[in-house]
């Protein structure tokens, strides 16, 4: 029998590796949409059927809508509007990035097995995926110079943190209202970043953060 949770987590991990290796920005946005949906689905399958109220179902639908549809379409619009197709000069190359991604994965497995947490069955895998996603998000932000890729890195970081929250806590304390607030912050954050991105693009003729070197001491 195929374990649904594990398949979802494997897809998430693959999406992380793909995003580290992808050269085209549109492809990157699509990968992020997939990752967003997978991350939103994880707690649903992890928890089983016993604790799913109607509030939970509505919340997860909203979450899939925001993470899988709204945020990626905002990113898609940003990519179209500023007319950049690919990252030409990454600070760290694509092959090296994938290698770094694999190293991060191994380190996450190592960390998870050394934490000695009495996690419920199946949560080890979630924690591994979560740490990998978070660290890869950080790496993406540092290794790419296009502003849009940095936003995507930030989103990956958030996805990772959300997964850590799912893996570690039993969800008896966090409430849907609160989680919805976090999601809303994320959505507005991406919107604001998109607006600044657009302005940077029209002021500098390119949305590259290496151009942002005017302010320093």
């Amino acid at each position: 029998m195929i374990n649904v949770t594990e398949s979802i987590l494997v897809i998430t991990l693959l999406s992380v590796l793909l995003s580290l290796g992808s050269t085209r920005l549109i492809a990157l946005v699509k990968i992020m949409a997939l990752q967003g949906i997978m991350v939103s689905l994880t707690p649903l399958f992890l928890r089983g059927d016993d604790s799913l109220g109607s509030g939970a179902i509505i919340f997860f639908q909203i979450m899939i809508l925001i993470k899988g549809l709204l945020i990626p379409s905002l990113l898609y619009m940003a990519v179209k509007k500023i007319a950049i197709k690919r990252e030409i000069e990454p600070i760290i190359g694509y092959h090296a990035s994938i290698l770094v991604g694999l190293v991060i994965l191994i380190i996450s497995v190592f960390i998870t097995s050394h934490l000695r947490l009495s996690l419920p069955a199946g949560h080890d895998m979630v924690l591994i995926t979560a740490i990998t996603t978070m660290a890869a998000g950080f790496f993406l932000m540092m290794a790419r110079s296009k502003a849009i890729t940095q936003v995507i890195g930030y989103l990956m970081l958030e996805n990772g943190i959300y997964l850590i929250g799912t893996a570690l806590t039993k969800h008896s304390h966090t409430l849907y209202v609160v989680e919805f607030g976090v999601l809303l912050d994320l959505l507005v954050g991406v919107m604001i970043m998109g607006i600044i991105l657009h302005n940077i693009n029209s002021a500098f003729d390119d949305a590259d953060t290496t151009l942002l070197r005017r302010l320093k001491d």
């Binding site: 978070m134 932000m141 502003a147 940095q150 936003v151 930030y154 970081l157 958030e158 943190i161 850590i164 929250g165 570690l168 806590t169 976090v182 954050g189 604001i192 970043m193 600044i196 302005n199 940077i200 002021a203 953060t209 942002l212 005017r214 302010l215």
Partner: peptide
């Protein structure tokens, strides 16, 4: 624009770590 970009990105990433802290 540069100041805003730095502000939003650095603070958002920083504050995301605080969320992780509260999960712990």
């Amino acid at each position: 624009l540069e100041a805003t970009w730095k502000y939003v990105l650095i603070c958002s990433v920083g504050i995301a770590l605080a969320l992780l802290g509260y999960f712990f």
